[in-house]
Design a protein around this nucleic acid. Structure first.
Lengths: 105, 105
DNA sequence: TCCTTTCATCGATGGACGTCGATATGAACT
DNA sequence: AGTTCATATCGACGTCCATCGATGAAAGGA
């Protein structure tokens, strides 16, 4: 897609970004702007996980957890696979790394 | 403060985080969950900047820009210094780097 | 002291978000 | 088909947020 990312922190070659890129970056950061979603991402960082485990872990209603998973999916931070009855979620490493590079990696 | 940070992405030693840490991390990410604030941080990454320049740059009302600066200040991502009539804002590199490490540094 | 400039704060408003119960979808098993 | 379990979607409600105009506070100059 794009070879270089704009950097938000103090690299030696910091470049200005336009409104579109700022909006795209903000949308991704917004997906992490909720404690439940941060915890979900942290959990998925330990490996693939099915929704039923997440439902049991977070003391929230099942629709609420499903909603947060959708937000993370729409942001491209996680992906899901249906295997039989259960749906398994996993991190999308490239997306997380892209955010990290944005912060000055 | 703390020697090690929880990591949200695919490091080899990813550790689970508690609700408090998840809330603190989400609060910081929320400070970046707005296009204007992402653009402000990107602008400050190029060096110190006074508020009047930011007001001119973002086509928003002066109170709105001031509000965003306060959000970033409360999150610890930027700091300000008053010199004479003008207030100068700058990035807090440690805070940004901390977020970066959270994403898998 | 009065005026101007710069920035922060206040109060209000419209829209977005997190949460839930109810319901729909979809897969496995009898 | 009918039943049960696992997820997703829908609709509603309360709260938070971005934005604005108006106002306050602080500094410098006439």
């Amino acid at each position: 897609m794009q070879t270089r990312l704009p950097v938000l922190c103090c690299g030696p070659a910091t470049k200005p970004i336009g409104p579109r890129q700022a909006g795209a970056l903000a949308a991704r950061f917004r997906a992490l702007a909720d404690p439940t979603r941060v915890a979900i991402v942290n959990r998925l960082a330990q490996g693939e996980c099915c929704v039923c485990d997440l439902n049991a872990a977070f003391d929230l209603s099942q629709p609420t957890v499903s909603h947060h998973l959708k937000v993370l999916r729409d942001a491209g931070l996680v992906a899901s696979t249906r295997r039989g009855t259960w749906a398994y979620y996993r991190l999308v490493p490239d997306a997380v790394q892209q955010l990290r590079q944005t912060l000055g990696g």
